[in-house]
Write a protein that binds this DNA or RNA. Structure first.
Lengths: 347, 347
DNA sequence: CGCCGGTCCGCAAACGTTACCAATTCAAAC
DNA sequence: GTTTGAATTGGTAACGTTTGCGGACCGGCG
């Protein structure tokens, strides 16, 4: 059951192990003839490099650790997938490790990954910051934190890649303005969260520049969900003098709440009200929802993170910390419509 | 930047490397006193075992390869998460590898994983069976195929773990019968797919036993989706003498289509029609859907698969192939209601 | 005193690679 | 004819562990 090694190949093709190694890594100092012969034997025997041994001696494992929060949402799924894909293209494998650091006697994800001698760590941020990175990085290898919440740790000594939430908010306002809307509402997320703050600021900044009115509705709940979207929508619709023709929900979950309430109240979307979301979660694409929304562009996010991590690994740089912002894009579906200029806002 | 090794510890605590090794693996042939001393030095120095070296010599990497299809859906996300969790509890790490075997010059996932010397491979089945396993397993290490479609490869020499689709169909019929329904419909999946066949057979078998009428609607499309659900629903509702009080949709996607069409036609759910799905996809839990459905129980599925793979690894058995079926469970939400016995079916 | 058994420890060989340094050949240059 | 140099190859020491075997020490027994 022993798998065949470089020694076997050497014996079988009548050369030394060194030569076999050279043939495999097509080193310059080997004759084409020998190389071909050796490689043929390798193929015949089904030889496979033992990467453990290679990593051991080169002290580079070409492994990347990926730390995920314990909950499985489509966002993280897509992130993981793209990360793996990009890493593999660049010659790296992904070692998975899902949250829950101190459950029972289990070691923390970081310890495990470091023991496996990963070359770097990619960490999808959790809102639950119960376990953040150890103070000075995970200890020895570079680390990139990835995702929206990463912005919160703006002072920490970490490398982060996240969506540009400010820009997203800005784009939302521009988009609605271009459609002709002049009276809009912003429905927020968990108050104080950086995601909320940035998207809000972006939206308000653009609105101010463009001269577009914004009614801000604060999220009453500690966490934002469809339910809190419902609550905010009801509150908005019942305000005296409600005249908004479009709402920007700071997350798709909130947008779904808005749609639900509008449905209940017989408010037609998009005829009477345009709704714009943020995140492009899977639900948004459902045929009976078709939510127009701002997409985080997970593939790009993933690629940027992997690239950054690569650079850190190659350079060995550990004194300078980078922060990348990825510009989101608008996914046009069916919940926003242009407003002709002579249309009066509803009473 | 060299990380500290067992040799450093040996030097620092004045013993041999052997002794340090024994202390770390708490071998019996070491005095408690020495062990404590060595371990203290390890802690002080922040020593971390180099698993590469350990794996190299023990020829057991405690690594499991996980092969996923290229598309990221919540089902696979949940699966991966649970697999990782379970594996870690049992002392194994997961090495991720996502589909797309022969894109460009990239090596196949299996080659990569085998080069990393994983102890076993877990493969989430794809409907796209373009790349199945190499004929005789992936070559050297045990492999478990996981997921619904796995049933199709019933003759192949593979170990599989999948949900018991027949039982699911059976449970569906029993459930609807117990609610009082006597006239039901079954809306199918891609014709010829094992998932469809088994769920259908299970449903029909139970219905026959119980004496419950079933109107079967075949899926017209090559792949089943919300749209095909819509089509089947329209076809059913327009049949002359339509009298069904409940439909069992063989997947949640199909069920969503049914709900949508019922909505359009003003057919109230669950008042006029009960709808039962299968899969418990994320959408099913949305507050404005609340689909009653049969759940695949991914955590259990994942655990079973990991357990099976472990057994195969430990035993070294490679001549007998196992097939595990996991019983699904019913998630009761809001789309099914009991029918009082005197209620007449709608005209 | 010699022997035995047990407890604790160290030496050195492995695991499958790569890297450094030398050795060999052969042709061209002096 | 000797030197130089390039091209190709081989031997061997690493990398950080684990493991088999043997040695040292000690207490107890005949």
């Amino acid at each position: 059951m022993r798998s065949i090694t470089i020694k076997d190949i050497a014996r079988l093709s009548g050369v030394s192990v060194t030569t076999v190694s050279r043939a495999l890594n097509n080193a310059p100092e080997i004759s084409e003839e020998t190389q071909e012969r050796v490689l043929r034997v390798c193929r015949e025997q089904g030889y496979r490099t033992n990467l453990l041994a290679r990593s051991l001696i080169s002290s580079r494992s070409h492994l990347l650790g990926l730390v995920l929060p314990e909950l499985a949402n489509p966002y993280h799924a897509s992130l993981s997938l793209n990360i793996e894909l990009c890493a593999r293209e660049l010659g790296y494998q992904i070692m998975l490790c899902c949250g829950r650091p101190e459950k029972g006697q289990m070691k923390s994800p970081f310890d495990l990954l470091l023991s496996q001698r990963v070359d770097g760590i990619l960490m999808a941020s959790t809102s639950d910051s119960a376990y953040a990175l150890p103070q000075n990085g995970p200890g020895g290898v570079p680390c990139v934190v990835l995702g929206a919440c990463a912005a919160e740790s703006t002072t920490a000594r970490t490398n982060t890649v996240s969506v540009d939430n400010f820009m997203g908010g800005y784009m939302a306002a521009e988009y609605l303005f271009r459609l002709g809307h002049r009276n809009t509402a912003y429905l927020g997320l968990r108050p104080g969260s950086s995601t909320h703050t940035l998207r809000n600021q972006g939206f308000l900044t653009a609105a101010r520049t463009l001269g577009m009115a914004v009614e801000v509705v604060e999220n009453p709940d500690p966490s934002s969900s469809i339910e809190s979207g419902c609550r905010m929508a009801r509150q908005l619709f019942r305000r005296p003098g409600f005249c908004q023709t479009a709402v920007f929900a700071a997350s798709d979950a909130v947008a779904l709440g808005v749609i639900q309430v509008a449905d209940e109240l017989g408010l037609a979307i998009p005829e009477q009200l345009s709704v714009l979301g943020f995140d492009n979660i899977e639900y948004a694409a459902l045929p009976n929802i078709r939510l127009t929304t701002i997409s985080q562009n997970t593939p790009l996010l993933a690629r940027s993170a992997v690239r950054l991590l690569m650079e850190l690994i190659e350079s060995g740089e550990d004194a300078v910390y980078t922060r990348k912002l990825v510009t989101p894009s608008i996914i046009q579906r069916a919940t926003c419509r242009p407003l002709s200029s002579e249309e009066a806002p509803p009473a």
